[in-house]
Design a protein around this nucleic acid. Structure first.
Lengths: 194, 194
DNA sequence: GACTGCATGTAACCGGTTACATGATTCG
DNA sequence: CGAATCATGTAACCGGTTACATGCAGTC
């Protein structure tokens, strides 16, 4: 799934600037299962504009670059929906340096192992909080992206958010239950070696 | 974490061919949290050989390209350990086209939604089975990578495997408990719209 | 005073994927 | 008879990251 498609999807929830789209992938709605950086989003939006899939209105701002508020065109919407129906989803890929490093826990000092686990836990804790579908991104006047025009929560979003949270919670739970055990095993393991 | 480091890590468990290393990332030990394709592994091994971090012995085979069995040099081992101690682990990144698509469940036919969920579940089921630390890759004469020379299981590996499995199981559980609910909600949602 | 947030944009670079080339064997 | 498995290797290509450029406002 390329950045262009991701941007179209982001705009399905309503208008947004490039900067705001990045936030959806950094902090927001999509943060736990997709990523996209500004350096790829801006060119993507330019391309989409050329192709007639999005339009933007320029809002002048003092002391800042003009804000470009993007919106799907009806063709953009149709195009995205077509993609949705036709695309065979790519494989899920989860990459974690921390888990890779932890595979070699025997080879590092105990403190490092513990630090890595703690960091892993901290990241998941943060993710879990960011996902929370009830928080609803707060003050947004026109209603958040989790809800449609009538204020009904979107089932798809809730399901995906719930799933993300379940994964985070499971991770956290596992760490709570197994961290000390691992540390103890490592102590024994190292004692046996010497 | 680049492919070179990944290859060094893979060889920490003992000697292997490029083809076997790919398998560790495709099916095996590392499959649930790192990926690497042959097109990047072979060049990486060549580079590592040039740098003196790995060596290989060529085993002739009939009707096949010679098999190159790679092995860490002592410098390769030291270098990997240094990397392990010095590297700030990169962010975990989980990318899932399916979850992205499911965010827009309202916009697609119910059957597609269900198919996507089922596929998601099937993939995680498979992952869960692949991880299983007890299976121990079976017939391997010199013992699998989950165990050290004395046959003791490596705590780091077990921990990471367990964590992977906990995540898979949580995913599967969530789907079991919420799939039908989502489908029902979508039915209502669509009925209300029309 | 330094850093973060808002806000856009460009371009070099780089790493990895994909596809191709080769070829016997085994399984369904 | 086609597909998958074993087994290595090269190279074009492409997508995205990183870094740079610009600049003000607010906070620590």
């Amino acid at each position: 799934m390329d950045v262009r498609t991701l941007c179209l999807g982001a705009l399905m929830g309503g208008e947004a600037t490039g900067y705001e789209i990045r936030k959806m992938f950094e902090d927001g709605t999509f943060s736990h299962f997709q990523i996209a950086s500004l350096g790829s989003i801006y060119p993507a939006l330019t391309k989409l504009t050329q192709d007639g899939l999005v339009t933007f209105v320029e809002h002048e701002q003092e002391n800042r670059p003009d804000k470009k508020i993007y919106q799907l065109t009806s063709e953009g919407r149709r195009s995205f929906l077509r993609t949705l129906l036709q695309t065979r989803p790519g494989e899920d890929r989860y990459r974690s340096d921390i888990l890779f490093m932890l595979t070699f826990a025997e080879e590092m000092p105990l403190e490092l192992t513990e630090a890595l686990i703690d960091e892993f836990a901290a990241r998941h804790q943060m993710m879990s909080q960011q996902i929370d579908p009830d928080k609803d991104d707060g003050t947004d006047a026109q209603g958040s992206r989790w809800h449609d025009e009538d204020g009904n929560p979107k089932p798809g979003c809730c399901f995906v958010a719930g799933l993300g949270q379940a994964m985070c919670d499971a991770t956290l739970k596992f760490i709570r239950e197994n961290k000390q055990g691992l540390l103890d095993q490592l102590k024994n393991y190292k004692a046996n070696k010497s």
